[in-house]
Design a protein around this nucleic acid. Structure first.
Lengths: 252, 252
DNA sequence: TAGTGGTCTAGACCACCCA
DNA sequence: GGGTGGTCTAGACCACTAG
């Protein structure tokens, strides 16, 4: 939910969701720990019950409230803010937690895709890709090694950026690229020579790896990345409600 | 979406979602890669557009289709099956991927909660908890060390299970406990002496750690766990669409 | 039994995309 | 401009929980 510049005015259900989130975090319903009924919320805010339910779905997705047939909704906790931007962009995430992100570009390659790359990006073998290798820092301390693979069309834009550009994601958004979908996988790998040199750890020492693939609304892959974090620098958290889930990252 | 035993007949939107998922995975719309319009689906299946939208929301949450105003929905990929059970229960997950799960109970403690445990389970300091330490296996090979902490009420049920019970989650479900909410965090830790002894690795070697807290529909914590996986045995995957997310695990 | 959330309908208007 | 998905309404019935 990146809340893009509202060419359309913010829909009412989001407006209401924001109001309710605010009310919850300020302790408005703290006495009972319950939310008013949907009907009552509808009356109080001058919208239909359907709109109230849309708003409550947002809150539920974010883990703020539960729901169960027959009983009022229960307040679960306070705000969580899953945000596609934050999951897509180290820069954006770092700023969101008040850190100063940095980046050093180590290498940019423009070459034919390997088989694995072609598969991940839905390209034909031999199609050209860009690979960008960067060292990312928080407050000047190395945190992760980032390898981004872009198809030609996207990579061209990235390659044109100034070498000292910290965020690569923002310019892409400005260019009109839309990320509709992200697929992450998280595991542990041993540092290779490059990782070790950049992060200042030993070759073979364990790193937490997050691989991501971003897809635009028409299903076309926008990039594929391999990020390797020093242990202790980051924690991934995932929240599931009965039907839905939200992911975020935390400083480890 | 555990699809509980339908005391109520399965709602139409789920029925429709299942039908559409089936159609997508069998390649029904493979030529165009597009879904028919909501209006048309409504006509064809004899339901209202609202119901169609509910069904499509399910598919979107699961990463099967995208949606964007103005254009038909695009088929993204094939089935993903996020399921609270599978995330809650190693046993259930293992079976879902065709593996044979095993468990060896190492230790059961019944004692006052530490401060951390009390906080996680929303207990008063000194309230009694159960801690169950188990070694979990796939096809007899050690995969993870599991530490489950239960509040008295739940732990009593677990402690009453037969020592060779593989799944602890299923009996709890049978007892009427409902998991409405799961919070995961994933990071890397060094194996302690116990971990190393059980998993057959060296003390200090890296393990992937998944900590979980489960909450029932009224917001009461049901358990808190700390699972430590041998590297290479598992990969966590998370899928986000614009507003929603789904998590799963894969054999590493 | 009263009140809640879950499901479903039939209609409406709009922003947006694309041919 | 025609068709799509996004939002919103006003109403209805039902399953479920709890006092």
């Amino acid at each position: 939910m990146p809340d893009p510049a509202p060419s359309t005015p913010r829909p009412r259900y989001r407006e209401l969701a924001a109001k309710l989130r605010e009310a919850i975090t300020t302790g408005e319903y703290a006495e009972t720990g319950r939310l008013p009924s949907e009907e009552r919320l509808a009356r109080e805010h001058g919208v239909s019950r359907g709109t109230v339910r849309q708003a409550l779905t947002v809150l539920r997705t974010n883990g703020l409230v539960t729901s169960r047939r027959g009983t009022p909704r229960v307040i679960l906790g306070t705000a969580r803010t899953p945000n596609l931007y934050e999951l897509m962009s180290f820069t954006h995430w770092a700023r969101s937690i008040g850190e100063v992100p940095g980046a050093r570009t180590i290498e940019v390659e423009h070459r034919p895709a390997t088989n694995a790359e072609a598969e991940q990006l839905h390209l034909a073998p031999g199609d050209m890709i860009y690979l960008v290798l960067r060292l990312r820092t928080l407050s000047r301390k190395p945190v992760l090694v980032e390898r981004m693979v872009y198809p030609e069309r996207v990579g061209r834009l990235v390659a044109a950026l100034k070498p000292d550009a910290v965020s690569h994601a923002d310019p892409l958004v400005d260019e009109g690229l839309i990320v509709a979908d992200l697929e992450h996988s998280i595991d542990v790998v041993a540092a290779d020579v490059v990782d070790a040199g950049l992060l200042g750890c030993k070759k073979g020492s364990p790193l937490m790896r997050e691989r991501r693939r971003a897809t635009d609304p028409s299903g076309v892959p926008l990039h594929w990345s391999d990020d390797r974090f020093l242990p202790g620098t980051i924690t991934f958290t995932v929240h599931n409600s009965a039907a839905m889930t939200a992911m975020s990252r935390r400083r480890g």
